[in-house]
């Protein structure tokens, strides 16, 4: 039996490499200055989905909610081997917390049904919350297996998954369809395939085609879209209007959590005692620690 997977992926700011320019003087974050990366665990999730397809056949689609810029991420997924990439993007979705994000994702997944497995990274490095996967599963009334380390097997309508727990592991057997979130060590993502890069480097989302049409009066979006669809290079793009959703549950307005205050981290004046990095320095330090009743 073959399986149809959808992988939820996210383009994230590279929080590990934040430079000075990224922080504005008022302590807020200048997102436009942040370099972006493929959220590492989402990439591993895509790899697991591709492995499932390699083993049993089927399809792998990817879905991201994000700004127009997220199209780069979707092309990366096509280069790795995804059969199709879908962007859901709308200004109305901006500022969403995990609950509002999972609402839009669940509604979009409803449009993309049927599917057997939904994959996602355990968490994204820009928030580390690990909430969007389970919240999406709950909204779709799907079972979930979080912290997946390995897909052991799939047979008919069940999948067997090894998952991490504190100081150990569990092997779970779940009825399909279900949602799986994946930890980093589950697999090593395959590199881009040169052939696929050549084939998909010109794949475009609707927003990108609109931009092309804006820049050239001889081009019309509808024509461009037809052209790209016929060449297999159109990245399906959904907006709030394409989804039958309650916009009051989307974006900042639909998010129950709000940022009340942001403080940039200001370090207090240093009051520590400097110990010279010498043999005598170390002897002195041990004496001090004995006076502090830590040693001796």
């Amino acid at each position: 039996m073959s399986y149809h997977s959808i992988v939820m992926v996210k383009q994230v700011p590279d929080t590990a490499n934040i430079s000075g320019q990224v922080m504005k003087p008022d302590g807020t974050v200048n997102r436009s200055k942040l370099p972006t990366v493929f959220n590492p665990e989402d990439k591993v999730a895509l790899e697991l989905a591709l492995q499932l397809r390699d083993r049993y056949g089927g399809t792998v689609r990817v879905l991201t909610m994000g700004p127009a810029k997220a199209s780069d991420l979707l092309r990366d997924c096509l280069y790795m081997g995804a059969d199709e990439a879908v962007l859901v993007s709308d200004r109305k979705f901006a500022g969403a917390d995990t609950l509002a994000t999972s609402y839009v994702l669940a509604e979009t997944l409803g449009k993309l049904a049927p599917y057997d497995v939904i994959f996602a990274g355990r968490q994204a490095i820009d928030g580390d919350t690990a909430q969007v996967g389970p919240q999406t599963a709950e909204k779709l009334r799907l079972p979930q297996i979080t912290y997946a380390e390995e897909i052991l097997s799939a047979q008919d309508r069940t999948i067997t998954v090894k998952r991490k727990i504190d100081n150990g592991f569990e092997v779970l057997e779940g009825r399909l369809p279900l949602l799986i979130t994946v930890v980093k060590d589950a697999a090593t993502p395959r590199p881009f395939r040169a052939k696929r890069v050549m084939a998909y480097k010109n794949a475009r989302t609707l927003m990108e085609l609109e931009k092309m049409a804006d820049a050239n009066s001889l081009l019309y979006v509808d024509q461009l879209k037809d052209d790209y669809v016929s060449k297999g290079l159109f990245i399906p793009t959904l907006t709030a209007d394409d989804l039958d959703i309650d916009t009051a549950r989307c974006g900042l307005g639909g998010s129950p959590t709000k940022v009340h205050r942001i403080e940039s981290v200001v370090l207090g004046g240093s009051t520590h005692e400097t110990i010279p990095a010498t043999k005598d320095g170390m002897y002195g330090l041990i004496d001090k620690l004995m006076d502090d009743h830590i040693f001796g």
Binding site: Q135, E138, Y147
Partner: peptide, 23 residues
């Protein structure tokens, strides 16, 4: 914010449409 809590809390928050802040 354990393996169990991080699996459970988001589902409960989603069902009850409550705000949830991690860690």
């Amino acid at each position: 914010a354990s393996f169990i809590g991080r699996d459970l809390a988001p589902r409960v928050a989603s069902h009850t449409r409550s705000g949830l802040t991690a860690d």
